[in-house]
Amino acid sequence: MKRNYVLSYKAENTNEPVIWRLIKDFDLQVNILRAKVSPGQEGSLLVEIDASEAATMDKALCWLEQQGIKCMGVAKRIFWEEKLCVDCGACTGVCFPAALAMDKTDWKLAMDLDRCTACGLCVKACPFGCFRLDFGD
């Protein structure tokens, strides 16, 4: 099972080799998609975690919480203000994980949050300011 998470580091745990521990101790595949981590400062890491079993993923997430690292699914970090949307589709051309796509029958914008990698390209591409990305900024 693959999931995208934003890991929010506190200043005190930016020096911990967290990703190494996830791979070594929990046998996870971790792909870093975006990172904003500096020693001694709060930071965020966008990762795709692939676990063979749901239980392993749960254990790893539990361990992260114990380390004081908040772990949140990407779906909770991207906001689409649907009432501003006119379904133009300008965002879909820049969304490579295809989280944003036009429904080819009614040409309404459809969003699949599980696919979102929080790249933020949609934020600038939308002419109506429909998207907001919270990446711990």
């Binding site: 589709g89 300008a90 965002c91 879909t92 051309g93 820049v94 080819k104 009614d106 309404k108």
Partner: peptide
């Protein structure tokens, strides 16, 4: 263009509309 992709310089490029077909309809 409406199919979502186009062949451009021997690669697939994504296509996207800027005007709303839903509202045009």
């Amino acid at each position: 263009l409406r199919s979502g992709e186009i062949e451009l310089r021997n690669r697939r490029a994504r296509t996207a509309p800027l005007s709303s077909l839903k509202k045009a309809r």
